[in-house]
Amino acid sequence: MFPYAIEDFLFKTYGDWTTVEELNGVNEGKGTSCYRLFIGEKSFIVKKAKEKREYDVYNSLSGFFKDKKISIPSTYYTYQDRTDYWFVIEDIPHLLPKERWKGDTEQIKVLFNLHFNTWNKTLSIDKPFDFRWSKELTKRALSLLPSTLEVAIEQLHLKSETIFSPVCYISGDPNPTNWGIRNNGELVLFDWERTGYASPAIDLAITIPSLGTLDKSLEFTIASTYINFWKGVSIEFPYSIQELTEQIVIAKMWSALDFLVNNADTLEEDLLKLHITRLIEKFKVEYPDLT
């Protein structure tokens, strides 16, 4: 199941595992797999990836993140074979409870720490995720959504340029299910497959469940909390609360379109219809004169 090097490390360090669970939520079509192993009373996460970027996070950046108070799972072992990248990491015991899914201050502070400490800097990551609006995104979005949204989609495309500006390093996918809590209460961010350089708005938007609020109240609260962390530091944040709020809305709609386009072929029909219905509603609210 695992490369010999992984099995040898686990056996020599911890002993024989008793149970293996394959975890959901990974993109097996792109060569990613993830398992939870139990050895005695201890559990581990073993993950395989085709891309090197998440491997680099755990292999090279753990110390930097710890120093900057960006908590990620502890790294026990990493291994690179001819085609894949493997890592054995800490299994975070508790999920982020749903009552903390909307503008959690501690969550926003972790993202601020990440963005502030990498502002206009680069890290040792192989092939960072390419955050952009591709021609294929527009084409496939128009094949899934009503033709009456064509002008609105193009307007969103034009407005999205700012969110792709590589001003800092971002997680790329800090959705509520990618956070966990240690037994000591510490908040931990995992799943770094889409990590790269872009605007903080993308990370902030992806923390929001579904498509956010129609009146932008949650987006405004998140922008306000986030910008407060920038007060008194050595770098001046370049956007107002209102500007960041608008960027978060744009980033949320882009990420929803990106998810829809890349997962339409594998989503169950009812879930696909739900995503499409919510996007149509969001476009009608944001672009009432164009829909």
Rank of each mutant, 00 (worst) to 15 (best):
P3N: 11
E7Y: 08
E7L: 15
D8C: 06
D8N: 13
D8W: 08
D16S: 14
W17T: 05
T18A: 15
V20I: 15
V20H: 02
L23H: 09
N24D: 12
V26H: 11
G29W: 01
T32K: 02
S33Q: 13
S33N: 14
F38Y: 07
I39M: 05
G40N: 09
E41Q: 14
I45H: 10
A49D: 14
K50R: 13
R53S: 03
Y55S: 08
D56Q: 04
S60D: 12
G63E: 14
G63D: 14
G63V: 05
F64W: 12
F65H: 11
K66L: 09
I70G: 07
I70C: 11
T75A: 12
T75N: 15
T78L: 06
Y79V: 12
W86P: 12
H94F: 15
L96P: 12
E99G: 04
R100C: 08
R100I: 01
R100A: 06
W101N: 09
G103Q: 05
G103T: 07
T105E: 15
E106I: 13
N113C: 10
L114S: 14
W119C: 00
W119R: 01
I125R: 03
D126K: 03
K127M: 06
F129L: 07
F131K: 09
K135G: 15
K135L: 13
K139T: 09
K139P: 02
R140M: 09
A141Q: 04
A141C: 09
S147A: 14
L149I: 11
Q155Y: 05
Q155L: 07
Q155N: 11
K159N: 02
S160V: 03
S160W: 02
F164Y: 15
F164D: 00
Y169T: 01
I170E: 00
P174A: 02
N175E: 13
G180D: 13
G185N: 13
W192C: 04
G196T: 07
A198G: 04
D203T: 09
A205Y: 11
T207V: 12
P209M: 09
L211H: 00
T213W: 00
F220A: 04
A223P: 02
A223C: 06
I227L: 15
W230C: 02
K231N: 09
V233N: 04
P238R: 08
T245V: 04
T245W: 00
E246W: 01
E246L: 00
I248K: 00
I248Y: 03
V249R: 00
M253W: 02
S255A: 12
D258E: 13
F259Y: 15
E269F: 03
E269W: 02
D270L: 11
R278W: 04
K284F: 01
K284T: 01
V285D: 08
E286M: 11
Y287A: 10
L290N: 08
